[in-house]
Computed example of a mutant assay.
Amino acid sequence: MGRVVLFDLSSQDPERAAEFYSNVFGWKVGESNWGYYPVTTGDDDKPGIHGGISKGPQDFPHGTRIQIAVDDIEDSIRKSVEAGAQIVRDKMEFDEFYLAYLVDPVGNGIGLIEYK
């Protein structure tokens, strides 16, 4: 079962967005890593997820995208496309995970993440 593990807030002014969420909701915003500011939204002993804020790319300049953990990213991409999704960014490799961005059949942005 794919579980939502993170959220991404895309903004053309990520520093301003980070300041807003930090001031209003008390989120802890970490240092930028590849232009991505990790966000801690609360204590791990309570329900909720963490996420991040980054400058939105041209294909997703503003909005929220969920990250869904999968066991096999290539299989999940294939199944997603067969079910009507479109690939925005195919499988990318990072130090600790693989990541892909898609748009579901009704236009919602999603990320698929496979931890190594």
Rank of each mutant, 00 (worst) to 15 (best):
L9W: 15
D45R: 11
G56K: 04
L99T: 14
M1D: 06
W27C: 04
V88D: 03
V4F: 00
S80G: 06
D8A: 09
P61T: 01
E31A: 08
I53A: 01
N33A: 12
K28M: 01
I68G: 09
E96R: 11
T41Q: 08
D72M: 02
G35P: 02
A69W: 10
I68H: 08
D72P: 06
Q86W: 03
F7S: 12
W34I: 09
V106Q: 13
E31K: 05
K116Q: 13
V88N: 03
F20I: 07
T64I: 13
G111H: 07
L112K: 14
K91L: 08
E74Q: 09
E15C: 03
D43R: 15
I77K: 02
T41V: 07
A85T: 04
I87Q: 12
R65K: 14
V81C: 03
R89H: 12
I113P: 11
S32W: 02
G111S: 15
V81E: 00
K79C: 02
V24E: 06
R3T: 14
Q58Y: 08
V24W: 01
I87K: 03
W27F: 10
S11D: 12
I77V: 08
Y101D: 15
Y115N: 15
G111V: 15
L112T: 13
I53P: 10
G52N: 13
G56H: 13
R89M: 08
S10H: 14
S32F: 04
W34S: 08
D90Q: 04
L6D: 11
M92W: 02
H62L: 09
G111N: 14
Q12R: 14
R3K: 12
N23A: 12
Q12K: 11
K55M: 10
D104R: 02
E74S: 06
P57D: 02
D8P: 00
K55F: 01
D59K: 03
W34G: 12
P57I: 04
E15A: 04
R65M: 09
P14C: 08
L9Q: 05
P105E: 11
G52W: 00
Q58G: 06
V70Y: 15
D75W: 07
G84H: 05
S80N: 00
G42V: 08
G35W: 05
M1L: 05
V88A: 07
I77D: 04
K28V: 01
S22P: 05
Y36T: 05
G111K: 15
G84V: 03
P38H: 10
F25T: 14
D43A: 09
G48Q: 04
F25Q: 00
F7L: 13
I49Y: 07
A17D: 15
D13R: 01
A17S: 11
